[in-house]
């Protein structure tokens, strides 16, 4: 073995060790969530998804209202956020020279990094205080604000990735601009657009801070309307992990596993969209 080969071996070893060091914490998170959560869910059984949370030191109960809240919030915020994002992206791509469209572009990039707790405060000020109550609607609005810049940016990129020649072909068929955009461009970019929507959806599943001052944390009743108080799994974890009661810590671990699995499911679906061969 000469000096060059030895150097290469050392280099390889360093790369492998450093990569492992980078990835291990992620595995550790997953494993400890699965390890701690799985035991709780096995012990609680299906009731974990169907029951209300326990009193201190009184068994495991379930997380049904928080689970329902998380799902309903994700759907409600998508209904508020996704159509807006779609139009904002189309506007930014179709009218690149319009000052307002330029503003949309810059703003959507800037909002990507906005501290989520600030969004919670904002919605508290503009919706919760005037209405005099927390609500699912306020929570969904805060989540929609978190989601819009992500979805807008993804949709923008998906539309911009459509080669110019398809746009020309559309206009050459005598189609109006809306038809070229919605019947041709959106169709060609549909995988990227769907991926963006799913990523937005996945993002709001786990958000906590925007819900702190907006949702009201009623974790004993399933929310039935947009003006009801609600809860989310993320808030339940946040609150229960801070209590001094062992049974509530366990519920938090179980809830963490449920949330992680939901997130993984959405992530895997979005992977399927991006992996399919696009030609």
């Amino acid at each position: 073995m000469d000096a060059r080969e030895i150097k290469e071996k050392i280099f390889l070893a360093v790369v492998v060790i450093l990569s492992l060091a980078a990835v291990l914490p992620v595995f550790h998170v997953f494993l400890s969530v699965i390890w701690n959560g799985l035991g709780v869910i096995m012990k609680a059984g299906p009731r974990f998804l169907l029951d209300v949370p326990p009193a201190p030191n009184a068994g495991l109960g379930g997380i049904a209202p928080s689970l329902a809240g998380t799902l309903l919030l994700a759907v409600l915020s998508s209904l508020l956020g996704i159509p807006l994002s779609l139009f904002a992206a189309v506007f930014a791509v179709e009218f690149p020279d319009n000052p307002l469209a330029k503003g949309v572009r810059v703003l959507s990039k800037a909002l990507l990094e906005i501290p989520s707790v600030v969004v919670g405060m904002l919605v508290y000020a503009i919706l919760v205080v005037p209405m005099g109550r927390f609500s699912m609607l306020a929570g969904a609005l805060a989540l929609a604000i978190m989601m819009i810049p992500y979805v807008t940016t993804y949709v923008e990129q998906a539309l911009e990735g459509v080669p110019f020649t398809y746009r020309e072909a559309g206009f050459a068929l005598g189609l109006s601009r809306p038809k070229v955009v919605f019947d041709i461009m959106v169709g060609i970019a549909r995988r990227g657009i769907l991926t963006g929507m799913l990523i937005g959806f996945a993002k709001v599943l786990g958000e906590t801070a925007p819900l702190l001052f907006t949702l009201g944390r009623d974790r004993y009743n399933i929310p039935l309307g947009p003006l009801d108080y609600g809860d989310s799994i993320s808030l339940l974890i946040f609150d229960y992990a801070q209590t001094p009661y062992a049974n509530m810590h366990q519920v938090a671990w179980g809830a963490a596993l449920v949330l992680t699995l939901m997130f993984l499911a959405v992530f895997l679906i979005s992977r399927r969209f991006t992996e399919e061969v696009f030609l």
Partner: peptide, 13 residues
């Protein structure tokens, strides 16, 4: 009018 382009560009979707 109809137009055919230099590179074939049928809509892929």
């Amino acid at each position: 009018m109809g137009m055919v382009f230099q590179t074939p560009n049928p809509f892929p979707n």
